[in-house]
Amino acid sequence: MSACRSMPLRQAASILRGLTGAVLLGALSIGTPAAHADAPVIPLGKVIVHDPMMIRDGAIWYLYGTGRGIPVYSSADLVHWHPRPRVFQAAPAWAHRTIKGFDGSIWAPEVAHVDGRYVLYYAVSAFKKNTSAIGVATNVTLDSSSPRYHWVDHGIVVQSMPYRDLWNAIDPAVIRGRDGGLWMAFGSFWAGLKMVKLRADGLRLATPQQWYGIARRERPPFFPETRPGPAAEEAPYVFRHGGWYYLFVSWDYCCRGVKSNYKVMVGRSRSVHGPYVDRSGKPMEQGGGTLVVGGDALYPGVGGNGVITSGGTDYLVFHAYDASDHGMPKLKIKALHWSADGWPSVSQAELDRPGLGRSGHTGTAK
Rank of each mutant, 00 (worst) to 15 (best):
A3M: 03
S6H: 13
M7G: 14
R10V: 11
A12Q: 10
S14C: 04
S14F: 09
S14I: 00
I15Q: 13
L19M: 05
L19N: 01
A22D: 14
V23F: 11
L25K: 15
A34F: 00
A35V: 13
D38M: 14
A39S: 13
P40Q: 01
V41F: 08
G45C: 02
M53F: 03
M54P: 09
G58K: 15
W61R: 02
T66H: 07
R68G: 14
I70S: 06
S75I: 01
D77M: 02
D77C: 00
V79W: 04
W81T: 03
H82P: 11
P83C: 15
P85R: 11
P92Y: 05
A93W: 05
W94M: 09
H96S: 15
T98Y: 11
K100L: 06
G101C: 05
I106G: 02
W107P: 04
P109M: 04
D115K: 12
G116W: 08
Y122K: 00
Y122N: 04
S125R: 00
S125F: 01
F127H: 12
N130Y: 00
T131Y: 05
S132K: 02
V140D: 12
V140M: 07
R148S: 14
Y149Q: 07
W151M: 10
V152A: 06
V152L: 07
R164A: 04
W167R: 00
W167N: 08
A169R: 01
I170K: 03
I175G: 06
R178A: 14
L182Y: 09
L182P: 00
W183M: 01
K197R: 15
A200F: 03
D201I: 14
D201G: 12
L203A: 01
W211A: 11
G213F: 00
A215T: 08
P220H: 06
P221R: 13
F222C: 08
F223C: 06
P224E: 11
T226Q: 05
G229R: 06
E234V: 01
P236A: 07
F239C: 13
R240H: 12
G243K: 07
W244D: 09
W251N: 14
D252S: 10
Y253R: 12
C254Q: 09
R256I: 00
G257A: 12
S260M: 10
S260L: 02
V264G: 04
R268H: 02
G274T: 06
G274E: 03
D278H: 02
G281T: 10
K282R: 15
G288F: 05
L291V: 12
L291D: 00
V292K: 00
V293E: 02
V293K: 01
G295P: 13
V302I: 06
V302T: 04
N305A: 11
G306N: 15
V307A: 12
V307R: 07
I308M: 09
G312S: 13
V317M: 02
A320V: 08
P329L: 12
K330S: 09
L331Y: 10
I333A: 01
K334S: 05
A335T: 04
A335Q: 01
L336D: 02
H337D: 11
W338L: 01
S339E: 05
A340P: 10
S345N: 10
S347T: 07
Q348K: 06
D352E: 08
R353L: 15
R353M: 13
R358Y: 07
H361K: 11
G363S: 13
